[in-house]
């Protein structure tokens, strides 16, 4: 398992603290999923609220193991920046995908699924399915 190549996960939030905390939460709730490469890309490079294309590119490169990278975002510029980078073609590793999922629940589902060695399609499906999880 330790030699297995896993799908990487990037968590993009307007806030550095939110991105880092959700990464920690998802890994923690995933139990033995510490092998899953997860990287937060939160806030601007200056430490403010916003989105940094550079931090996103660096995070995606850091978690890329050659099996694809699932990117989860919060809203607004986080979504648009990832889409713009994907449209550029050479800014993100091959097989990087913006996953349409709720940020916290989707991150947990993505990390747990990735820990099983599942491929990017399965990780994306699990994260997206988190939308159907009703609380009331």
């Amino acid at each position: 398992m330790s030699d297995e190549k896993l799908v990487g996960i990037v968590l993009v939030s307007h806030s550095a603290e939110v991105a880092a905390s959700v990464a920690e939460l998802a890994k923690g709730l995933a139990g033995g999923a510490t092998a899953v490469p997860v990287a937060p890309a939160g806030g601007t490079e200056g430490g403010g609220l916003g989105t940094s294309a550079e931090l996103i590119s660096a995070a995606a490169a850091a978690v890329d193991r050659g099996r694809g990278v699932a990117v989860l975002t919060d809203l607004g510029s986080a979504v648009l920046t990832v889409k713009a980078l994907l449209a550029e073609g050479d800014e993100l590793p091959d097989g990087t995908r913006l996953v349409d999922a709720p940020f916290v629940e989707g991150a947990v589902a993505a990390v747990v699924t990735a820990s099983t060695g599942a491929d990017l399609d399965a990780v994306e499906a699990a994260a997206a399915e988190a939308y159907t999880y009703r609380k009331v």
């Binding site: 989105t51 648009l80 889409k83």
Partner: peptide, 13 residues
């Protein structure tokens, strides 16, 4: 795209 930090970055970019 790299420096604006808000939605206008990717949009104007």
């Amino acid at each position: 795209i790299s420096t604006v930090g808000g939605a206008s970055g990717p949009l104007y970019g």
